[in-house]
Computed example of a mutant assay.
Amino acid sequence: MSNSRDLTVASFNLLNLQLPNTAMYPNTRRYTPEIYNQKLTWTANIIKQLDADIIGFQELWSAKCLVDVFEKANLSDDYTLVFIKDPDAGADLPNWDGIAVAMAVRKPWQVENWKRHKDFPEELLLNKRDRSLQELQNNPDLVDETEDEDLDSAHEDEEIHVDIKKFSRSPLEVILKNADRDDVPNFHVFCAHFKSKRGSRLDREEYHHPTIDFKSHKDALGAGLSTIRRTAEATALRIILNKIMKDTNTPVIVLGDLNDGQFSNTLAILSNQPDFRWYADSTAAASNNRNDTGLFPAINLQQLRSLKDTYYSHEYKNVPEVIDHVLASEEFYDYSNSRFWSFRDMHILNDHTDDHGKDKIKSDHGVVRVRFDWNKAEDE
């Protein structure tokens, strides 16, 4: 058994784990009891293979399903399950409107608190006013005082207003402690599932508009809606993270199906693009303002030490890429002065993605597992 302070985390998209004979999406075939049992068995085997302390799940329709999985794996006594709704609040295990995220936490790690984030934080304001360059030149105080003296970046933005107030799928925040070790700090783990790249469907009002031909442009409009929502969700979660991470040494992990690659705008916003250390004397990864709130993508940490570049967790339109992520704060980064853990390795279980099948027994996503070794900076 590993050191009780070591930490293994994983992200697992369950691909519509729902109870048998129970509705999912309008055009999705319901599972038979036989298919449901096969899906439980396959999912339980993956969980045992992961051997992870913390597992974040996506695409869960019912809490009862995850309870069934851990019973099937004979791991119910080892893990605490955390959902976006409290099972103790009612007589039955909760369901929710659509798919949701959840988390499993293994002893000795213990849930101190948890929170569902549905509403965007009040600071999330995607608004920009239309002002001429002359107006900005005459009144430079109309823009952020931290802007560069060059007003190009202020003038390039014409009027923008994006009105999104909620996450389409609520992120789950869980605060964890080590029940066996007082020297291990409490830390926050977020499980998220952002809007996919698949275009949103137009509402009936636009699709059948009497005078404007929205229908001919539904692919472009749908893709635009999806991208705007995913970007807004990344921004909202980044604001939530800033409040926890700024000027603190609070360890934070974000994991989940973020539906974008590590070099996307989505990940750039969410990670805050921390500095990596490229040579021994570099001070880039030392504690500074950017790394204070930055998150290091595990896929980048793995690729920096790997001779192969064959990592992928999902394939969309025949393009394989990593869209299921584990992001870790500087308290998990090898070269940080604030380090408690160091990155050991990342592994993606993805052999099953080629044959997940019409019955959806297997997931169409690879399962990402990342290991961190307890390695406090002051212990060196």
Rank of each mutant, 00 (worst) to 15 (best):
G224K: 15
G222L: 12
D354T: 12
A52K: 08
S168M: 11
L81N: 06
I244L: 12
K243C: 09
D247P: 10
D68T: 05
V143G: 11
D53H: 15
P297H: 04
D182K: 14
D97L: 04
D97M: 04
P297Q: 04
N138S: 13
S4T: 07
I239L: 15
A220W: 13
L7C: 04
A102Y: 01
I160F: 09
E112N: 11
K195L: 05
G56Y: 09
N16A: 03
R129M: 11
R201I: 02
R198F: 03
K317Q: 14
Q18W: 05
E71V: 02
A223L: 08
F120R: 06
Y279R: 12
R290D: 03
I323E: 06
S363M: 05
E380A: 03
T211M: 07
V189T: 01
P251W: 05
R131K: 08
S336I: 00
A286Y: 15
L124H: 13
N74K: 11
S11P: 05
L267F: 11
A328V: 15
P26I: 02
T32W: 05
K376A: 09
A100M: 13
K166N: 14
A52V: 00
V82T: 02
A223H: 14
Y207M: 13
D150M: 10
T353G: 01
V111E: 06
D309K: 14
E123K: 15
Q302E: 13
Q49A: 14
K362H: 08
R29C: 04
H117P: 00
F276A: 07
V105R: 03
Q58D: 09
Q303C: 08
Y311H: 12
N350T: 03
S216P: 05
E135R: 10
L126D: 09
T146F: 10
S306Y: 06
F343D: 07
K246E: 15
R30N: 07
L19H: 01
S153W: 11
A223W: 12
L60C: 04
Y36P: 01
S336P: 03
L125P: 01
N291K: 00
N178T: 08
I269C: 03
E378N: 09
V67W: 13
V69Q: 00
I323C: 08
I212Y: 10
L66S: 02
K64L: 14
S363K: 00
R29W: 06
N265Q: 13
F12P: 00
Q302R: 06
K118T: 13
N113A: 15
K362A: 13
Q302I: 02
N259V: 09
Q302N: 05
D130K: 12
E147V: 09
S306G: 00
V254C: 10
N186H: 08
N272E: 06
P20M: 07
Y79A: 04
I361P: 06
T250M: 14
V367C: 01
G56E: 02
T266E: 00
V252I: 11
N300E: 08
F276Y: 15
L124N: 04
N16L: 06
D354H: 13
I99C: 05
R198S: 04
I361A: 10
L258I: 08
L176S: 07
K39N: 03
